[in-house]
């Protein structure tokens, strides 16, 4: 599992871990039923506190993204298609927000933007 944490990121470390694992699950990088490293192993590998990894895992479990099987570890839960879809919609919205901001700031019209979207959707 590839996780990168950074001190220069303004978000708390547990949040960074939580969101990275979350997106990996939603995007299918982490498959259903896959065993995650224990929070202690993750803490050791990332050289951070167990409290931090514990919090991240707790949040993931509260959201139903992972399940802890006592004695065995944490497994990726099955994720509902609607959740996956939602994840994609959020990500797409973010990308389009950036494009829209750039267009607006540089005098590119709404119609021109629509044209580009259509073009991109049809594929090059």
């Amino acid at each position: 599992m590839d996780i990168v944490v950074s001190n220069s990121d303004p978000r708390p470390i547990y949040e960074q871990i939580y969101s990275q694992i979350r997106s990996q699950i939603i995007n299918g990088v982490l498959k259903e039923g896959e065993l995650l490293p224990s929070m202690r192993v993750l803490a050791k590998d990332l050289r951070i506190s167990v409290i931090t990894t514990k919090r991240a895992y707790n949040d993931l479990e509260a959201e139903g993204l992972i399940t802890t099987v006592g004695g065995k570890g944490c497994y990726v839960s099955s994720v509902e298609p609607s959740v996956i879809r939602e994840g994609h919609l959020v990500s797409i919205q973010e990308s389009i927000r950036k494009a829209a901001d750039e267009a607006r700031e540089n005098g590119i019209s709404r119609e021109e933007l629509h044209e580009i979207v259509d073009l991109m959707y049809d594929g090059d």
């Binding site: 202690r40 192993v41 803490a43 050791k44 050289r47 167990v50």
Partner: peptide, 12 residues
């Protein structure tokens, strides 16, 4: 040394 401690802490 710190890695040794981290290793020791794998046991809860």
């Amino acid at each position: 040394f710190l890695d040794c401690i981290r290793d020791y802490m794998l046991d809860e």
